[in-house]
Nucleic acid binder design. Structure first.
Lengths: 398, 398
DNA sequence: CAGAAAGAGTTCGGTGACCGAACTTTTACG
DNA sequence: CGTAAAAGTTCGGTCACCGAACTCTTTCTG
């Protein structure tokens, strides 16, 4: 009985909602006019005018010239999301690097800073180094005319409530990452002291990036797999991340594909990760890295092709379960998989076709797709911040 | 770009929202007063008074006496959901029976009518018979002071957009069930002509029933399995059914537990259903029905115990995948399983403990639970209707 | 090259829904 | 019996949107 009931509605709530609605409408369209927005969302033109005026004042939108429709009638004033002002700071911390980016409201990557370093170390130290990189980015933000509205961390592990519950690849355990990062950043840049910090699993962030920056036509309900050392997964339903009860949803890498298979570090046996993770794949193909593997496959190396086919079969098997359970419109493969698609896809597709309840997976083209190269976890993290801004622009002012 | 943008907010929308909010608050509490509602939802007392007055007028709430707090101060007027007026009509159509119930706003089953008959027949005929049973129930509704606000069908198959895409156990295929049922009902009872008809898969309806009528303390994010001829599944996240892109989500029965296992009628191999479905279970235990199976198990029959242990293992294996993917707070087993829990649960629990990513499934008591006997699909269907009423009481008036 | 038509945007009075302060009603307590 | 406390109501104020009427800018028409 103590769950926080959904909030009441009152007139200030109406205003907030409609400000967000108008901002998101302009954002989705890229460019529009007041009248077009009004027609789209069902508000009257005067109401939209008033909302737009406020959004202009606050720096979320800019006017730029007039439309040339060729039609009769007064041309409209073009509205666009502001390229200056509110921005999202995305910070990806991975085993071998930290990558930071600043993305503005138009969705363009205005600044990117990637530092290769070994993060399998003491969590506070790693987070302090990441905060250092972020601080450099923030130092440049002013010159770019950007005012970061928040920071988000993409982390390789189970994340809930701002804490990394476990991240085997980093050797972290119950690390309050948001707090540590926030404190380190505030120490380096007092001006950034009040910057809200969010965090999530890198697979979720990558999925968010795909949603926001992926190739047009990406559906809004999909499964996203990230092939890295292990196999990360995320579930997006109707444009929203499915986080589950504790924020751990999406662990596709530990779906069981062979009950009696090899022991996995998670304690189970025969997890997908043991067949389709980067480590397993390279071992089976006797290749040193993914480039080499792709090269071997291109040259028709039997061992490489067999390893890829087997990995594809296992991916398909695990995915068939996930598809039966979640009924997505598409499955998106990211990380190392896009490069290996030609050799993985046939086995994946075959397995899906055989194992998914019929009707649930019509063999349309494009239901199995490679992640967009533009969609990395750091940008996804920035998108998470921007999503908050779009959801309640007023909250990100002052 | 053509997706229906979320609706604008305006003042009439505020009113609708707050009417729903107040109604749901009273509903959740069972009994309250205006002042308590105001404190709970954050509206002022005058605002709540106005909203309550309208809800009283419309017949959604009733006043009943005064509170006796023993405290100083004027006692409050007790508010309750009306036991007369709006009601939900739930209709479950299964292989061997049709069950209809009328549930009022207090959540009590006011009328139940179950007819055993063989529904493996021509869909229009079956739906017409079901409409007949529903019409009888509606005929009694007046006497009970109930005004059905809608009907919902629980159907054993894949349902989307009011149509049964496939229902192997009934032999249906692309059957426009909502329309057929609605037309048959209108023919029998012209007064019910405008009754909106909804429909969903019976597993989803059962999950909804568990959510609404289950034992108190049922979490709001859970997996629900229904053991019947096959194995149905539903996913509830934060109190909402997860339906997926086309409405087919939740097919847990076809998760693969043994890639080389027996062929399933879905076309795949080694689906959970082949091990833990009623048919498979009875076959393995050489029992005629579930009662007999439970009896054998009670007497320590080795064959029965082995069959149950094996089914439990397979259930656990499939569930571990689903838990890794969805991070629920609990798993609820319904249908034939509650009766078999003592013999199933150990194997299920063991398998979950081994295979779920650690931390994601702490071995709390009550994370694996039997469905409440009060939660059947017909009541779930009625709950679906009532949920709509609670979400927008004004829409169900005229 | 007027004049009409059309579409974008603004002005302005109206309305509905909630807020807040003050008021009334009802109970308990000393 | 007076005071305190809580429930519920009354009433004026405010805010955000609506709708009709208006202005402004462009294209089309004869």
């Amino acid at each position: 009985m103590n769950q926080p009931t959904e909030p009441k509605a009152d007139k200030s709530g109406v205003r907030r909602h409609n400000l967000s609605l108008v901002l998101r409408t302009v954002h989705d369209a890229g460019e529009t006019t007041r009248a077009a927005v009004a027609a789209r969302v069902g508000l009257t033109r005067p109401a939209v005018s008033s909302l737009v005026e406020q959004l202009l004042d606050l720096g979320f939108l800019v006017e730029s010239g007039k439309t040339f429709s060729g039609q009769a009638g007064r041309p409209g004033t073009v509205l666009k999301p502001a390229g200056t002002g509110p921005a999202g700071l995305g910070v990806e911390i991975n085993v071998a690097y930290v990558s930071v980016c600043l993305v503005d409201l138009t969705g363009t990557d205005r600044l990117r800073r990637t530092v290769r370093l070994d993060n399998r170390a003491d969590a506070p130290a790693v987070l302090a180094r990441a905060a250092g990189v972020a601080a450099e980015a923030l130092a440049d933000a002013d010159a770019l005319g950007l005012a970061p509205a928040g920071a988000a961390l993409a982390l390789p592990g189970l994340v809930s409530d701002g804490t990394v519950r476990q991240a085997p690849n980093l050797g972290w355990h119950d690390t309050p990452a948001e707090r540590l990062f926030g404190e380190a950043l505030a120490a380096l840049r007092p001006a950034a002291g009040r910057l809200p910090v969010a965090s999530d699993n890198e697979a979720n962030m990558a999925a968010l990036a795909e949603l926001r920056f992926g190739t047009p036509g990406t559906p809004r309900t999909f499964l996203h797999l990230t092939g890295e050392t292990g196999v990360g997964g995320a579930v997006v339903v109707h444009g929203e991340l499915l986080r589950g009860a504790h924020g751990f949803a999406g662990e596709i890498g530990h779906l069981v594909v062979d009950a009696e298979g090899p022991r996995c570090r998670c304690g189970s046996r025969g997890c997908l990760e043991q067949y389709a993770g980067q480590a397993a794949l390279l071992r089976a193909a006797e290749a040193g890295d993914v480039d080499e593997l792709a090269g071997c496959a291109e040259r028709g190396d039997t061992r490489a092709l067999a390893a890829l086919a087997e990995a594809g079969r296992m991916l398909g098997r695990a995915l068939s379960g996930a598809v039966n359970l979640l009924d997505p419109e598409a499955v998106v493969l990211g990380g190392i998989y896009p490069r290996l698609m030609p050799w993985l896809a046939p086995a994946v597709t075959a397995e899906l076709a055989e194992r998914v309840v019929s009707g649930l997976w019509p063999a349309d083209a494009g239901r199995l797709r490679a992640a967009s190269p533009a969609a990395d976890a750091a940008r996804g993290a920035a998108a998470l911040v921007l999503r908050d801004v779009l959801a309640d622009p007023l909250a990100h002012t002052l």
